[in-house]
Nucleic acid binder design. Structure first.
Lengths: 340, 340
DNA sequence: ATCCTTATCGGGAACGTTTGCGTAAAAAAA
DNA sequence: TTTTTTTACGCAAACGTTCCCGATAAGGAT
């Protein structure tokens, strides 16, 4: 069952040339006469020659492919990031291989091993919520694998990072809630081990401080799988609602957490925004059609994907080992709707 | 900037063995003594040896990768299909390379050329709404590339096909609308060049025939980009509403079409389900949180992905050229909510 | 003692490219 | 004319594997 590809050797034989001449002609080398080049090019065209990328990779020690690991692609935020990555990568002749961690550190490690054994030239990763052991990633980085972090970064590893302005996003959202008169704001967040969680918490906190509203510890809940598992969101909210001080607003720390909250409140028939205000980070393009239309913090996912791909490619294609690294912070947008 | 991986040659040198012995030991050949195997395995472990997949591919003339082309991954239906594909592929040691056509025939062709030059071992494709020239695909198939169609199939090309039961899905949905008393049912569909459109139309038609309700031609609109472009949905609905006989219900022919309809009706402040019933094919997991909660036909996307991956792998790994092909039809589910 | 297995390993070619080096012939310089 | 340079091409090695073929030594059969 194969698909007999024509090789340089075939062309060389047909034309009575050597493989080196053919190779050079195809690569438009100055060492080859125009006449020969024309001959080779035309014949290559005729027999539908396509260079074998596998052989090229082996020779050049480059695979022309980059790996991308995100928690899941069935998530608007990450699929938008991937779209951004692909747009840049394809323009530069790179293949994108995506893998999903499903918020599991174990699966993430598997993917990591898998991708590196596929000899990717570089990696873009948004670590899983579960990940707290970076040693493998760190080792890869030390051994020279170009890595760019997107969204969920690891501060310890010195390389390019692309994030949304989580601090300001959470700050603006919280401030908005406070201005609307909400005073007991609950926060359902990803694990605090995640960079985005800490940044968002800081924004949440500073908006409180500014308004001189104390933060209540028992209105903050952390969950482990980014909202992928609804039961976790449910449990977190149950705890929130078991308190004597019930929240009058909720800030969702991720796309799935936010919609999970909505589902919970709907199940419990808690009225939004009358009984509780709901706001959250989200990139789905349906938030305006939900009931009620959701106030969200939207992240520039596509642009973040583009940025991380360009940074990665610059890393891959730079001759000398880079020492100066960027941290790109892209601004978030607060879209106010009916839920607050 | 490389990442000098340890090779079989390194191990051979370290251990004073030949590369062939090391290779055989790693592949657990019977020609190698247990002692040597143990020695090699342990040393390989210690130096973190990972076989170079590129070299293996070159040697074996297999890339252990499969290509997947869908219209876009930021679409629940397709991302669920991809998840199904990946789950099977990864278990068999295959890498999945996904590409998006964005419903453009041109981009689809580009992706096709790109993937085949990356020497994929097989292809899973759901053709774009724009595609009406299958010659390139057909040529690839004739030259021996294993192909499996999923969702949107090309009948002309003889190979495995995996589809949802579009006929019955549309039939059940239409019947449901009729039972609810709707009589002038509008249909917003993808291009009729698409297999799914024809199948769905047939179900739509037969439900009408059974109920002895004539189908009104001017209640049927076709659009070109699967709902990706909202303006197209808007234009189609505008035409529907320009008729003297206005629809009292609408059947959306795809995920994005359905949500596009909802957005339109909401913008026009047309009440659902009082003024118009809305039903549609959709796989997003937010349809229950929309306003109103949407009645949908849900397709077993994940399972379809699994099925197509297994069929493709069987095609790839079969020694003799296959002549008997399957068409798997997976049943759809009607989920009734408030919009009808 | 010789011959035949069997077990265990090494040599080397091959997969399709790219590229450094060598070398004829042609062109330019002397 | 001779010498030097340039042009245009071929040879062969290399990338990391796998695997066919031999080779060696030990052991058993004759």
């Amino acid at each position: 069952m194969k698909f007999s590809a024509v090789t340089i050797k075939d062309i060389a034989r047909d034309l009575g040339l050597s493989t080196s001449t053919v190779s050079r002609a195809l690569r438009d080398s100055h060492e080859i006469s125009e006449a020969t080049k024309k001959l080779v090019l035309e014949h290559a065209q005729k027999v539908h020659f396509k260079p074998n990328r596998i052989a090229q990779s082996l020779k050049e020690k480059k695979s022309l492919s980059i790996g991308v690991i995100v928690c899941e692609i069935a998530n608007s935020y990450f699929s938008q990031i991937i779209n951004g990555i692909e747009s840049i990568a394809y323009n530069h002749g790179y293949t994108v291989i995506t893998a999903q961690s499903m918020e599991s550190a174990e699966r993430e490690l598997m993917n990591l091993e898998y991708l590196t054994s596929s000899s990717i030239d570089g990696l873009i990763i948004s670590v899983s919520t579960e990940t707290n052991n970076f040693s493998y990633l760190k080792k890869l980085h030390e051994r020279g694998l170009p890595i760019v972090f997107v969204d969920r970064v690891i501060e310890d590893i010195e390389t390019h990072k692309v994030i949304a302005d989580n601090y300001k996003g959470a700050y603006k959202a919280t401030k908005h809630l406070i201005e609307k008169g909400y005073k007991r704001i609950g926060l359902i967040s990803n694990n605090p081990s995640l960079s985005i969680s800490r940044e968002r918490f800081d924004g949440f906190k500073d908006a409180h401080i500014e308004a001189k509203i104390p933060i209540k510890e028992n209105l903050i809940e952390y969950i482990s799988h980014g909202g992928m598992i609804y039961e976790e969101v449910e449990a977190a909210l149950n705890k929130l609602y078991k308190n004597k001080v019930k929240p009058d607003a909720i800030l969702g720390g991720s796309d799935k957490i936010t919609t999970g909250c909505l589902r919970y409140l709907k199940n419990k028939k808690i009225k939004i925004p009358e009984q509780v205000g709901l706001i959250g980070f989200s990139n789905t393009d349906l938030t305006d059609l939900l009931y009620p239309p959701l106030t969200v913090i939207r992240q520039p996912a596509y642009e973040m994907g583009e940025a991380s791909a360009s940074l990665l490619l610059s890393l891959i294609e730079s001759k000398r080992p880079q020492t100066k690294f960027e941290k790109r912070i892209q601004s978030t947008e607060l879209i106010i709707r009916k839920s607050t």
